[in-house]
Design a protein around this nucleic acid. Structure first.
Lengths: 130, 130
DNA sequence: GTAAAGTCTCACATTCATGTGAGAGTCAAG
DNA sequence: CTTGACTCTCACATGAATGTGAGACTTTAC
């Protein structure tokens, strides 16, 4: 599929799909015209990448992550050959994620509670309930 | 305590403590000299805010959240009087957080796994284990 | 073949969380 | 009082993720 369809299906702006490619997180094939052509699997991968980015993972860390998760989609160079800096980076990132998961759960609950309170005030029309 | 001490105790850069105040997320008292004076409770609050920010919550959403979590620290104006836009914002934010929590857990696990793999390659000296 | 819709590549603009430095005032210790 | 550490307020700089528009080519539908 082409970029427009992928964008529609993933809800990710075209601009971002191109950006992910620039970062090496998505590697569509190119038609002779220059048009990008995506595989079905890219729907999932794009969604994953987008989630990771929104979770605050820097794209440079997402790349090696993808290598671990799926041993093919990113055409492997030697990006993840255990170098010490990476280990440190990921250790830090892991700690961050770990605390963030807890923190986000807390936030989630707080938001939910806040939402309930807001709706209790503005009762009546919007049935977008939990 | 003054900003330097708070910074030391929370590990949050002074610049950020001032930024949080600018955003209304922390409201220290002021000495006649202009110096900020923080309460003990601000240690916790600053930490919380910092976590939320690092989790990707926009500061503008953290503010009303704080109102819910602790009914005093932020000197209440009428920021959270159920207005419809806020409801929509928070509904969206809730959905985002909900999926993000899942996503982060996934990322966390992926990072952890990746970390293990890296360490398996670079065995020997760094005992910064899980 | 023509027009409309889709895509491509720049490239600059914006927002948010941060960093950083300048210039000035404050506070504590000698 | 002087010095050094701390703080204050600007205000500009940066990096990352995004938005947006221009100018040109491609694909699709008629």
């Amino acid at each position: 599929m082409r970029i427009g369809e992928l964008s529609r299906r993933t809800q990710i702006p075209i601009r971002m799909l191109r950006y992910y490619e620039e970062r090496g997180l998505l590697t569509p094939q190119r038609a002779p015209s220059g048009y990008r052509h995506y595989q079905e699997a890219d729907v999932e991968q794009a969604t994953l990448v987008s989630s990771l980015v929104r979770s605050g993972l820097p794209t440079r860390l997402i790349l090696p992550l993808l290598h671990d998760l799926q041993p093919n989609p990113v055409d492997g160079d030697e990006t993840d050959d255990g170098d010490d800096d990476l280990v440190a980076l990921f250790a830090a990132e892991f700690a961050r994620l770990d605390s963030q998961v807890k923190c986000l759960s807390l936030s989630r609950n707080a938001v939910q509670q806040h939402l309930r309170r807001l709706r209790a005030t503005r009762v009546s029309h919007d049935p977008t309930a939990t």
